[in-house]
Design a protein around this nucleic acid. Structure first.
Length: 292
DNA sequence: ACCCGCACCTGTAAGC
DNA sequence: TGCTTACAGGTGCGGG
C-alpha cells in the first residue's frame, strides 16, 4: 500500500506525536520481522526519539543516543499510535492481530502512547542499527535519489542508463526511490508519456516533463495524506485515511473514461505490474509533430 | 551485466 | 451459499 506519499504521511503524523518521547517498553511478537539486534535495546528501548527520517518508501526512527530503527511498510504495513490503556503495561493491543511489534512511549507532556507495527502480509519489516549513518550506509545507499528531490539531469541520466520500459524503470528503487504502482501510472499520465515507452529513448524535454508531473503528483498526494484504497488498509499513524485516491486519473480506472479525452482507459501488465493508461493522451512513441 | 518472472504472505473479491 | 481462483500499494532472488 505505501509509496512515498503514504510513508511521508506516516512520518509526519508520527513526528507530531512521538518526537521527544521516551521508549519505556518494547514488545516483539514476531522476531522474524526484525533484521539485526532484535533485543529491546536494538528496538530503541530507553531512548528518546530525536528525529524521523525518510528516503523513498523507507522510514527511520532515530534516538538521541544515535540508535536508529528502519521501518519498511512493504505492501500492507502500518505504524499507528494511540493513547496507551492499562498504564505502563503493554495492554491488549499487544496481542492484536498481525501486530508484530509495539512500543510504549512517554511523551514530553507525560502521556503514555502505544505505537504498533502491524503488517498482515509481512512484506515489510524492521532493521536495527547503532547509528543513522550505519542505516544510511547499509540500507539506503543502494536506493536512488528520493523522487521528491531528484533533479532533471540526474533523472535523465538514470533513465538513459536502462533499456526497460519507462514503467519498469520508475518502479526500480535503485534508480529512483519512492515511486510504486499507483504514482508511476499517475505520473506518466500527467506527463503524457506511455508506460511502454523505452526508458533510454526519452528525450530530455520529456524527462523534464515527467519530473515536473511526478513532483506535482507526489506533492499533492502528500498534502492529501496519501491514497487509501477500497480495502481501507492504509492510514496515517492516528488511523486517518488518505484522500488522494479520489484524484487518481488512471490507477484503478481500467475501462473508465479518460478524464482528459474521455477515451476508454486501457490496462495491461507492464514491468510485471497491472498498468492503466490512456493510449490517446500518453504518446506511445516520439512522433513528428504535425497537424494531423 | 542486465532483465524477467516468480516467490514471499494474507486478505478480499470475483467467478463458477 | 460455498469453494476456487485471481489479484493486491513491494522487494529480493534465481535463472535465462
Amino acid at each position: 500500500m505505501p509509496e512515498l506519499p503514504e510513508v511521508e504521511t506516516v512520518r509526519r503524523s508520527l513526528e507530531r506525536v512521538i518526537l521527544g518521547a521516551t521508549v519505556e517498553r518494547v514488545a516483539l511478537h514476531r522476531p522474524d520481522v526484525v533484521t539485526g539486534d532484535a533485543s529491546p535495546e536494538g528496538l530503541l528501548a530507553g531512548g528518546r526519539i530525536a528525529s524521523l527520517a525518510r528516503h523513498g518508501k523507507h522510514m527511520a526512527i532515530v534516538a538521541d543516543d544515535g540508535r536508529a530503527l528502519e521501518v519498511h511498510l512493504g505492501m500492507s504495513g502500518a505504524v499507528t499510535c494511540a493513547p496507551a490503556r492499562g498504564g505502563a503495561d503493554l495492554g491488549p493491543w499487544e496481542a492484536a492481530e498481525h501486530v508484530h511489534a509495539a512500543w510504549l512511549v512517554r511523551t514530553p507532556g507525560g502521556g503514555l502512547l502505544s505505537m504498533r507495527f502491524r503488517d498482515p502480509r509481512r512484506f515489510g519489516g524492521l532493521w536495527t542499527f547503532a547509528s543513522e549513518e550505519a542505516l544510511r550506509a547499509r540500507r539506503w545507499s543502494r536506493l536512488g535519489p528520493d523522487a521528491l528531490s531528484i533533479d532533471a539531469r540526474d533523472l535523465a541520466a538514470r533513465l538513459k542508463n536502462t533499456r526497460r520500459t519507462l514503467k519498469a524503470a520508475l518502479l526500480d528503487q535503485t534508480l529512483i526511490a519512492g515511486i510504486g504502482n499507483i504514482y508511476a501510472d499517475e505520473s506518466m499520465f500527467a506527463a503524457g508519456l506511455s508506460p511502454v515507452r523505452l526508458s533510454h529513448r526519452l528525450r530530455h524535454e520529456e524527462v523534464a516533463r515527467l519530473r515536473e508531473a511526478m513532483v506535482a503528483i507526489l506533492g499533492r498526494a502528500v498534502a492529501a495524506g496519501g491514497s487509501t484504497l477500497r480495502d481501507g488498509g492504509y492510514a496515517d499513524s492516528a488511523g486517518a485515511a488518505g484522500a488522494f485516491q479520489v484524484d487518481h486519473a488512471v490507477y484503478g480506472r481500467r475501462g473508465q473514461p479518460c478524464r482528459r479525452c474521455a477515451g476508454r482507459l486501457r490496462s495491461a501488465m507492464v514491468g510485471g505490474r497491472t498498468t492503466v493508461w490512456c493510449s490517446r493522451c500518453q504518446s506511445a512513441a516520439r512522433r513528428a509533430r504535425s497537424k494531423r
